[in-house]
Design a protein around this nucleic acid. Structure first.
Lengths: 343, 343
DNA sequence: CAAGAACTTTTACGCGCGTAAAATTTCAAA
DNA sequence: TTTGAAATTTTACGCGCGTAAAAGTTCTTG
């Protein structure tokens, strides 16, 4: 490699013997040039390992090949996993994903959207904070940028939403719990940040009533995204005060359930199904760690891969034909009951 | 706001009555203009919410205000947490952090470094894959970009390394375990991706020998970054075959330990300290989930905040005076013994 | 082999901003 | 008020690439 000489496309044109406009075409789409030309370019590329300046490229594009991915809380492996899936799909589609986490904070979410807008992205995949989001800010953002919401819905905002069918998921696990033992109590945070929580509580109530059973919702205090901590601390309180009318608890999500399992353990209650166990605990989401709790957690799985794939598909169709959208698309994937040992 | 008119700095100069070069100065450092001027600019900014085009800015800077953060595996909450800390510190320092995960894959790590280089970052904070890294690629990268390594060291690569003192950490927990019961067996992956694993094994051996005890290292098969899964599957095997010479096991990291706890639970062994327990399990790292295992996990904490802070400090001093470096800096933070219920 | 299609080259301009130099204005201290 | 330092304005150029238009070349098809 005889390098150190090629500092821009002009120079690369000289050393490769290809004109700059053709090179420009090539870098925007290698298939848009004749195969022989492409081969010559790529041979020269091997020699000089030149790469176009990404800033200069994007300055002259109204829209870039960047895709923003904004998640509410990346330290939650659920979002990390989904982001990983999405990233890979974006790369496969020829885009550059940029991952931003709002760390559970509204100011950060607003900053992230601002910062993403500055990137002039082709599109954005956004899992909003939910209750903690500044709706006006998000609406304005979605008006300016093709945006697909996932995980957490905000009515009428964004061009599409992809998430879980909470009604179906809650329905199926409540039904299972009722069939296999005592009906579940619903354990949740009073002011859950995520709007799924409300849908889940509602679905729980509806399912219980449909089954002719009296629902019991235990809403506990606790702010922020430290769900395990809240589940554990408040779980111990609930257990100590014997607030549950039955021996079965359905937690609003797996992270709360993981905390609740810890609470049960620390309270000396054995969790599992069968006569020798004092408590049954179930969750929702199939969190990556749910396979390794003690006991392993019965839950309803979200299909991470499917959600990621559909979200990206929606965004791609949005990018390809921005005006061809008649109405907002909503996709809800069914959850799958995952029977493990905790319930 | 009378908007829709200001499309570049020129226009903003017109509407604000400030010359473009002064505006340029302001956006590069608001303190570099006279306070009255600054006030006028900021007043105009309220009116027109103009933002400089980031691509045009960076095209003319040899170095940008971007800082790359590359971690090996973001779905591991350990890295997510440390990245969160680092991100915030970078923002406070006036930089734009860009977070990239290699998802445990060498090709992805190489791509990430390539992609970061294209961003012309002021500096990079890199936690390499370790054993899975392509040393030559990383060396070349570090030659071109001011880089601070963290978590996982690669000898003589990068301008600085910030991590945990494995010898101290392992020493302290081995000592504790020996003092409080039977000496620990060391449980690890045979081909751990992270170089800390080797240091930990070595430290374990050294400490045991110093104490006049015979070390026992159990190295299990398992590829990839799915540590809990490996810890659980292989843990069950180890337990079933009674491979451990004592009732105490020190796992090479918390994620393995979390898996091992699951294995013990599923094997019917009660974990904890005291006569009524069959097994003691300890880990290393103080993983975010270690407070919620059953039982809670005794471990040695890494000071996430300190590691993040020092890493960023090192990088900042590197950015400010790139040549003032005589030798590679290495910072090792002591781990703190965290006594919980598992050992 | 001819004709037209498809591609490449040449030429030229523009994007939005950094930045240098010289002229002018503002400010603070004497 | 004067004076010099500091800040601002004016003017002008350059960064690396996208892209348009016209002219030239190569390929395909019959």
């Amino acid at each position: 490699m005889s390098e150190q000489t090629v500092r821009n496309m002009e120079e690369f044109a000289t050393v490769s013997g290809i004109s700059r406009p053709t090179l420009s075409k090539y870098f925007n789409d290698p298939d848009s040039v004749r195969p022989t030309t492409r081969a010559r370019i790529e041979a020269a590329l091997e020699e000089h390992d030149y790469r176009p300046n990404i800033y200069a490229i994007n300055q002259n594009r109204r829209l870039t090949k960047t895709i923003g991915i904004v998640v509410p809380y990346l330290s939650d492996p659920f979002f990390a996993e989904i982001a990983r899936n999405i990233e890979n799909l974006c790369i496969d589609a020829g885009f550059r994903p940029i991952l931003l986490s709002s760390h559970g904070d509204q100011g950060q979410e607003n900053d992230n959207l601002d910062s993403v807008r500055g990137l002039k992205p082709a599109g954005v995949l956004l899992a909003p904070l939910g209750r903690g989001s500044d709706r006006a800010v998000i609406e304005r953002f979605c008006d300016a940028v093709p945006t697909v919401l996932f995980d957490s819905n905000i009515d009428d905002v964004g061009e599409a939403f992809v998430g879980m069918d909470n009604a179906q998921a809650v329905g199926s696990i409540v039904q299972y719990l009722c069939n296999s033992g005592e009906p579940p109590v619903f354990f949740e945070m009073r002011d859950a940040p995520n709007p799924n929580a409300n849908k889940r509580r509602t679905a729980y109530r509806a399912t219980m009533e449909r089954l002719g059973l009296e629902p019991q919702v235990i809403s506990v205090d606790g702010d922020g995204w430290d769900f395990e901590e809240i589940g554990c601390r408040q779980g111990k309180r609930v257990i100590a005060r014997r607030e549950m009318r039955t021996n079965t608890v359905l937690c609003s999500n797996d992270r709360l359930a993981i905390g609740f399992l810890a609470a049960a353990y620390q309270s000396g209650l054995r969790v599992g199904r069968g006569d020798s166990f004092a408590l049954r605990v179930a969750g929702l989401d199939d969190h990556p760690f749910s396979r390794f709790t003690c006991p392993t957690l019965t839950t309803v799985s979200q299909d991470y891969a499917a959600i990621a794939e559909r979200s990206v598909q929606e965004l791609m169709s949005l990018i390809e034909s921005p005006d061809a959208r008649d109405a907002r698309h909503t996709t809800l994937f069914d959850g799958k009951l995952i029977l493990r040992d905790s319930a």
